Computed example of a mutant assay.
Amino acid sequence: MFQTINYWTRQYGLNYWTKQYGLIDGPRTALQYKLGDRSRKLFALTLPDFAAPIWLRGGTSDVRVFLQVLAVKGYDISDTAQGKELRRRYDFLIASRVQPLIIDCGANIGLSGVWYARHFPEAKIIAVEPDQSNLEIASKNLTAYPNVTLVHGGVWDMPSHLSIANPDAEPWAFQVEEGKGSIPGFTIDQLSEGKPILVVKVDIEGAEKALFRSNTDWMDRTDLIAIELHDWLFPNTGTSQSFMKAIAGHPHEVTMRGDNLFFLMSGER
């Protein structure tokens, strides 16, 4: 997540809000957003078609997360062939009376959980976040979505004890490291309990290096992996290599939106 707030506000200013929400709600929402960001306090952004307000901490990366996830719709691939196939698989599971499972690794303030809950309302969503302050905001944002379960922790390739390596970072940039910390590190197998997975969303600030280095059998029962890679953040360390090696062993198709890559697993589903 390296785009600047100036870029997003230029691209998604008043004209964007008016087009999105109309001549009355659009300017109101734009003003609410602008004043809230400047306040440097917790504020509620009320969107016309949302069941509950979106809570953001003004003057922090929360506002950029909102723009990327909900305004720019960074996880929306519904207009691609891969997105249409994912929807078909979701509908098939519902018709078969099987609840789809989505695992949100790096939930931050819960906005990706909001997005998935709105677009896959019958799915069970497990949202994992290591930072307690982010979890507090996420719990407010997800109150209206009972199909989302918040989990305090990180994701790793083995059950682990983790800690925040950079506690002074922006709220969207916390990195975890293995050690004697008090944050539990869960495997995807633990979170999924061995069940088939519709989507695993991964935005974990470089921890993908550990997540995909071993114990990746869960990929065989996953339909889609949505991932942001972080080689740009950790140059010369091969952060993405374990993922690239793991995904190479699974037939797939790939599409891209913004910072995210979407790997749709091929084969019978």
Rank of each mutant, 00 (worst) to 15 (best):
M1F: 11
Q3H: 13
Q3Y: 07
I5G: 10
W8V: 12
G13L: 11
Y16W: 15
T18M: 14
T18P: 03
I24C: 13
G26T: 14
A30F: 15
Q32W: 03
K34G: 09
L35K: 08
R38K: 15
S39N: 06
R40P: 07
L42E: 15
L42I: 13
A44M: 13
L45G: 04
P48W: 08
P48R: 07
A52E: 14
P53W: 04
I54W: 01
L56I: 01
T60P: 06
D62A: 10
F66I: 08
L67D: 08
Q68G: 13
Q68K: 06
A71K: 11
G74T: 04
G74E: 15
G74M: 03
D76R: 06
I77H: 10
D79M: 04
Q82T: 12
Q82N: 13
G83C: 12
K84P: 08
K84R: 15
E85M: 15
R89T: 10
R89H: 03
D91R: 09
F92V: 05
I94A: 05
A95E: 14
P100K: 00
L101H: 04
I102P: 00
D104P: 10
C105K: 00
G106S: 05
N108W: 03
N108F: 02
N108E: 12
I109P: 04
I109T: 00
V114H: 08
Y116L: 05
A117I: 00
F120W: 09
P121C: 08
E122C: 10
E122F: 13
A123T: 12
A127I: 06
A127E: 04
E129R: 01
E129H: 03
P130N: 06
D131N: 10
L135S: 04
E136L: 02
K140Q: 09
L142W: 01
P146T: 02
P146M: 02
T149S: 11
T149M: 08
V151E: 04
V155N: 01
V155R: 02
M158V: 13
P159N: 10
P159D: 06
H161C: 12
S163V: 07
I164E: 03
D168Y: 09
D168L: 09
A169Q: 10
A169G: 01
P171W: 02
W172C: 01
F174R: 02
F174N: 02
V176K: 00
V176D: 06
E178S: 12
S182T: 05
I183M: 00
T187H: 08
Q190E: 14
L191P: 03
E193L: 11
K195Y: 02
I197G: 07
V199S: 08
V199Q: 04
V199I: 15
V200Q: 12
V202P: 09
D203N: 12
D203A: 08
E205Q: 15
A207D: 01
L211K: 04
L211T: 05
S214A: 14
N215H: 11
M219N: 07
M219V: 12
D223M: 07
A226M: 10
E228Q: 09
E228V: 03
E228S: 06
E228K: 05
D231C: 09
W232G: 10
T237A: 13
G238E: 13
G238I: 10
S240Y: 07
F243Q: 00
F243D: 09
A246Y: 09
I247N: 05
A248F: 12
A248C: 14
H250D: 08
V254I: 13
T255C: 14
D259E: 12
D259L: 01
N260F: 00
L264Y: 01
S266L: 11
S266Q: 15
E268V: 12
E268F: 00
R269E: 05
